[in-house]
């Protein structure tokens, strides 16, 4: 299986809103579904997880089908190998951290698996705490660990960072990227935050009113033709200065020099001499006189 093919149709009588999508999720990559509120992003995740049922279409993982309306296949959520990171996390309040993480597991090896996952997500020392005793970021890590512990075929992330402050978000982005590199899971992240989408996406799908607007690599989708409100400028980095939070890049484009502020996390992969693309849209651009 090199990818997951998704074709889904669902109508919502009386609302005038329909979902009619056809997209591909590359195996081992993080696909970001990006779109405004009400575009059907979360419903698509619920359809993928089997928590809601589409009227027509299919979800195929190679020869395996989770859903196929033509063949009458509709596996319940328990039979689909998914891990779901809910927007409100849905941690079980009566279970401590280790019981939450190990909830999906049975048998002798579950303790070892939980221990490994706790170490991997840096939750050591918090095993016996209950969800109400954790910070927002810690709760996220517990929910992520719980979703990943069964090594699901597909990890579904429903705007899990929307309630967090910027610093915690960035830490978690890095952790997800780190875990992704380590485990290599296939994931779908739903978000309406462009920066988040661009930062985490390896493959991207944009949605508008329940329909796929475009899909492909993040560069094609977010910086491609047709998005006239955004600009992209290929530049060369020739100086970098950092403080505790930001890095100031001095870049050059066709003999013109300008400076761009980026977060330190984003600057980690950039070095002097690199050729990079500066992308901006009117509402997010920062302009400094040189």
């Amino acid at each position: 299986m090199s990818h997951i093919d998704v074709k889904l149709k669902k109508t919502f009588p009386g609302t005038g809103f329909n979902i009619d999508v056809n997209f591909t999720l590359p195996k081992g990559e993080i696909t970001v579904i990006f779109g405004p509120s009400g575009s059907g992003k979360s419903t698509i995740l619920r359809l993928l997880a089997g928590l809601e049922c589409a009227e027509a279409g299919s979800i195929c993982l190679g020869s395996q089908s989770w859903f196929d309306s033509a063949k009458g296949i509709n596996l319940p959520p328990q039979k689909r190998s998914t891990g779901f990171l809910f927007q409100d996390l849905a941690l079980f309040p009566h279970l401590d951290v280790k019981a939450n993480i190990g909830y999906a597991l049975d048998g002798k090896n579950s303790l070892n698996s939980v221990k490994k996952m706790i170490e991997m997500t840096e939750l050591t020392g918090l095993e016996d705490r209950y969800p109400h005793e954790l910070s927002g970021g810690e709760k996220q890590r517990v929910a992520l660990s719980r979703a990943l512990i069964r090594s699901p075929e597909l990890l579904l992330l429903d705007e899990p960072f929307s309630a967090l402050d910027a610093a915690v978000k960035k830490t978690l982005y890095n952790e997800i990227i780190k875990l992704h590199k380590k485990i290599g899971f296939t994931a779908v992240l739903v978000t309406h935050d462009l920066a988040e989408a661009y930062r985490l996406a390896e493959h991207a799908v944009t949605l508008k009113s329940g329909k796929v607007e475009r899909q492909g690599s993040p560069e094609e989708v977010f910086l491609g033709k047709g998005l006239s409100t955004r600009i992209q400028i290929p530049v060369k980095v020739f100086a970098m200065e950092s403080d505790e939070i930001h890095t100031l890049l001095t870049v050059e484009e066709n003999g013109r020099t300008f400076r761009v502020f980026v977060d330190n996390d984003e600057a980690q992969s950039i070095s002097i001499g690199d050729e990079v693309i500066v992308a901006a849209k009117a509402s997010e651009a920062l302009v400094f006189k040189i």
Binding site: P77, Q78, T82, A90, Y103, A104
Partner: peptide
């Protein structure tokens, strides 16, 4: 009981 907790349990493979 929060329906989200029930759905979370289902997605974690529990009947």
């Amino acid at each position: 009981v929060d329906k989200g907790l029930v759905e979370a349990s289902w997605t974690l493979g529990k009947s």
